[in-house]
Design a protein around this nucleic acid. Structure first.
Length: 200
DNA sequence: CTAACGATTCGCT
DNA sequence: GCGAATCGTTAGT
């Protein structure tokens, strides 16, 4: 079933990031439906977290969506090349978001391969935030999309991830955030082959 | 208005 | 392991 808005509007962004493991991210773009199981996430908090784009009330045109009510998509361009997909959480006025970093391909693999210009599914088909966005056809066009709509959403397909199969670690690529870079807000399903490249 | 750079990936060595 | 690709956002002039 599609996750309801109430899933996203809760206050504990790290808890939601953990619960997203084992859920299915689905897109329906240009007719084709593509989906993958989420195996890796990172939480970003708008307060007291220098790694977050919206930290300390930094409210700009780009970060605006994070301040809105949870259940929306925050997509932005990184390094001029990669589209990174985030889930906005928490209530209106509090800017929390969760970066999806790794998917296990499930549905529409053929279309994912076309988008990635690959012949056969390799491990990096949808492992890594830029790679999975390309595989699912996510671009900045989806900025602000409602995650309870018909274009992009997240489903619960009954998969339960045991707590002792979840690894938490510090986040990737945020060394500039000083002490906040040490927050253990990256969550990975243990032994998943589809996590992003920097291994634990 | 201008300049610097990033929540990355891929290909080559 | 290293460096290029590439452009919107940001902060400063």
């Amino acid at each position: 079933m599609k996750l309801p808005k109430s899933f996203y509007t809760r206050a504990d962004v790290a808890e939601i990031a953990k619960e997203l493991l084992g859920k299915y991210l689905v897109t329906q773009i240009n007719g084709g439906l593509t989906a993958g199981m989420i195996v890796e996430t990172e939480a970003y908090c708008g307060r007291d977290d220098k790694a977050c784009h919206a930290n300390n009330g930094r409210r700009t045109k780009r970060t605006e969506i994070m301040f809105r009510e949870g259940g929306k998509a925050y997509v932005y361009l990184c390094y001029g090349i990669h589209h990174l997909f985030n889930v906005v959480t928490n209530v209106d006025g509090l800017a929390d978001a969760i970066l999806i970093r790794g998917l296990e391909p499930v549905d529409g693999i053929k279309q994912m391969l076309e988008r990635r210009k690959m012949k056969t599914p390799k491990m990096n088909l949808s492992a890594g935030p830029g790679a999975l966005s390309k595989a699912l056809g996510i671009t900045t066009d989806l900025y602000g999309q409602d995650l309870t709509g018909q274009t992009i959403w997240i489903e619960d397909r009954g998969v339960e991830i045991e707590t002792n199969n979840i690894i938490s670690d510090k986040r990737v690529g945020v060394d500039y955030a000083g002490e906040d870079a040490l927050k253990p807000w990256r969550f990975v399903i243990k032994d998943s082959r589809w996590m992003s490249k920097p291994r634990i």
